[in-house]
């Protein structure tokens, strides 16, 4: 099977049962993507596929051949961290750091969803054209990423600071 990860192509001989998460972690060494529940309940395994965030633990790898997969290793560049990564450090948006790659990939996907006008459960008028980039919107939209250390405040601040300008409605 052939996979495109962080703009590079990878070959892997795979069992149909292998999840995209285990492909990344156990077969290709992309251990930045984390396993926290293996059942879509924590978000630690979040990666971007064609720019959209998904839970890689619920994804059978075989379904994702030929898609553009971005993991935390593909966020930012070799020389420089993504602005969101820097903001996470600055705002202490993590403690143990385990859910962090998932939070970051998720937030990048979230920003794009807001840009595309995808509403959320707290969007006051679901048909509204512009989504208010409020803390409440961030919190609702990031609720698929658990952080047991409780770095939620710092995460919201980091996300807000990074995307505020871009997403000012």
């Amino acid at each position: 099977m052939n996979f495109t990860i962080n703009e590079h192509s990878y070959e892997a001989e795979l069992d149909n049962r292998t999840s995209l998460l285990d492909l990344l972690r156990n077969h290709l060494g992309f251990t930045g993507t984390k396993k926290g529940c293996d059942q879509g309940a924590c978000g630690a395994c979040t990666v971007l596929v064609d720019g959209e965030r998904i839970n890689s633990c619920l994804a059978l790898a075989v379904q994702y051949q030929g898609r553009a997969i971005t993991t935390i290793e593909g966020v930012g560049t070799a020389g420089e961290m993504h602005a969101l990564q820097r903001a996470f450090v600055e705002h202490d948006g993590f403690q143990c750091g385990y859910c962090t790659p998932g939070q970051i990939c998720s937030a990048i996907g979230m920003a794009d969803e807001i840009k595309r006008g995808v509403p959320s459960a707290v969007t006051e008028h679901v048909a509204a054209h512009n989504i208010d980039f409020s803390n409440e919107e961030i919190r609702e939209r990031m609720s698929g990423n658990l952080c047991r250390c409780g770095a939620y405040n710092g995460i919201v601040e980091a996300v807000r600071e990074t995307f505020a300008e871009e997403l000012a409605s």
Partner: peptide, 25 residues
């Protein structure tokens, strides 16, 4: 757009379920 304008109940129900990642899948 049509769902949000004509059937807000459907858009809201979907958005009330699971997480954004799961809804994307």
């Amino acid at each position: 757009r049509t769902v949000r304008e004509r059937y807000p109940v459907l858009a809201q129900a979907i958005l009330a379920g699971a997480s954004a990642q799961i809804r994307n899948m």
